[in-house]
């Protein structure tokens, strides 16, 4: 299994990192909070921790800490436009249930 990016997501991530001027990749993870138990974490990454699991996708580094990995392994990160709004979307095969907003989930 792995954590991957769609081509569209990869293009946007590269663009954001280039404009930001620094960063070795992005960090995906989960934290325990939110209305359905878990919440996604999506951040720029400046340093890799020794324990990080690193995935290479479309020439980008995706860092995941080992505690988060079981919850998001197999996830494909997409970039979507919905009306005026746009942003990243987690297509996560592990989730059993998510709150209406999609920001938190249970596995």
């Amino acid at each position: 299994m792995a954590v991957t990016l769609t081509e569209s997501a990869a293009k946007h991530v590269s663009n954001f990192i280039a404009k930001r001027g620094k960063g070795i990749g992005i960090r995906l993870g989960v934290k325990t909070s939110g209305c359905s138990g878990m919440a996604y974490k999506l951040e720029f990454a400046d340093v890799a921790e020794p324990e990080d699991v690193v995935f290479d996708t479309h020439g980008l580094k995706v860092l995941v800490d080992p505690r988060s990995l079981p919850y998001i392994d197999g996830t494909e990160l997409d970039y979507a436009k919905e009306g005026l709004n746009e942003g990243f979307k987690f297509n996560n095969p592990n989730i059993k249930d998510q709150c209406g907003c999609g920001e938190s989930f249970t596995v």
Binding site: V13, F16, I26, R27, K31, S33, G34, C35, A39, Y40, K41, L42, E43, F44, A45, D46, A80, E82, N85, E86, G87, F88, K89, F90, C99, C101, G102, E103, S104
Partner: peptide, 17 residues
């Protein structure tokens, strides 16, 4: 489905916040 944005390291917002 909410669409998420990339945050600065350690700055991910809690859901609905």
């Amino acid at each position: 489905m909410a669409l998420l944005q990339l945050s600065e390291p350690g700055q991910s917002a809690a859901p609905h916040e």
